[in-house]
């Protein structure tokens, strides 16, 4: 019942943890990527600069980590190809953890993405970047409260000066290895949507592997987006995977 990373052109070593790096455009995501991996990917200041998906690796506390830089997006609702790539990787690539890089000066817009990522996977670390910029503009960000509100570790950083990166690495590792157990904040939807999604969830369950969030997929179907369920199916090449689901379907049919 394993989807392999090969689907995404990734070939992690057997003992390597795979970490996805998501974030809005212009949050210094590439800077964080470079700072963590020691790579020298060029970081221009224009939206959409990361057109090639980058990968880099680093070792933290004797753990090998493969970091995958996803395209910068405002949302994961899959309106654009970039959003679809990011969403599919977080959902189907099954990274051991996903880091969402946010801009401390513009939190509200960035939290929108964080909340969406947390709907797909609980294994999230939020990197509150550009803290120096926030300080310069006299914006105070209470990162501890943010961690409590979101239910996932939030780490303040100034990536271009290397500030906060060790703590970020610690948090990534702890979430990826399960040392930190998160309890992500859930968005409250209108009651009729919630009800419809719960009902639909039961109907689609047989068609889906256990590890995807069925409620989240039900929401996508309700808003008229069936691309994710199709993406899952197009990746289920392995017969054994299908067999497991088939059993589920049979049980459901009875």
């Amino acid at each position: 019942m394993e989807l392999t990373y090969v689907d995404f052109g990734l070939k992690p070593l057997p003992d390597q943890l795979v970490i996805a790096l998501a974030g809005n455009p212009n949050t210094g995501k590439s800077t964080v990527f470079n700072a963590l991996t020691g790579l020298k990917q060029h970081t221009g200041n224009w939206p959409g600069k990361t057109v090639l998906r980058a990968e880099g690796s680093f070792i933290h506390r004797n753990n090998k980590i493969l970091l995958v830089d996803l395209p910068g997006t405002y949302s994961l609702l899959a309106t654009s190809a970039d959003e679809q790539v990011a969403r599919d990787f977080i959902c189907l690539g099954r990274p051991n953890a996903t880091v969402v890089v946010t801009d401390a000066t513009c939190l509200e817009r960035n939290l929108n993405l964080v909340l969406q990522v947390m709907e797909i996977t609980p294994k999230v670390v939020v990197c509150v970047n550009l803290m120096d910029e926030a300080k310069r503009r006299k914006i105070r960000v209470d990162v501890d409260t943010l961690s409590r509100e979101l239910g996932v570790p939030c780490i303040p950083t100034t990536a271009r000066d290397g500030v906060g990166l060790d703590k970020l690495k610690d948090a990534i590792l702890d979430v990826a290895t399960g040392v930190t157990v998160t309890s992500p904040r859930r968005v409250t939807y209108e009651p009729y949507i919630k009800q419809a999604a719960t009902q639909l969830e039961a109907r689609i369950r047989p068609f889906l592997p256990k590890w995807v969030n069925h409620y989240w997929i039900a929401l996508r179907l309700l808003e008229g987006d069936s691309s994710i369920i199709k993406a899952i199916w197009s990746r289920l090449e392995d017969d054994s995977v299908r067999a497991v689901i088939k059993e589920g379907t049979a049980a459901w049919a009875r």
Partner: peptide, 19 residues
């Protein structure tokens, strides 16, 4: 409604933590 709910949640959190 879904997008609206997500944004209002983000708004509410941001209001609490960013001054």
């Amino acid at each position: 409604s879904i997008v609206g709910s997500i944004y209002s949640c983000a708004e509410a959190i941001a209001e609490k933590v960013a001054h």
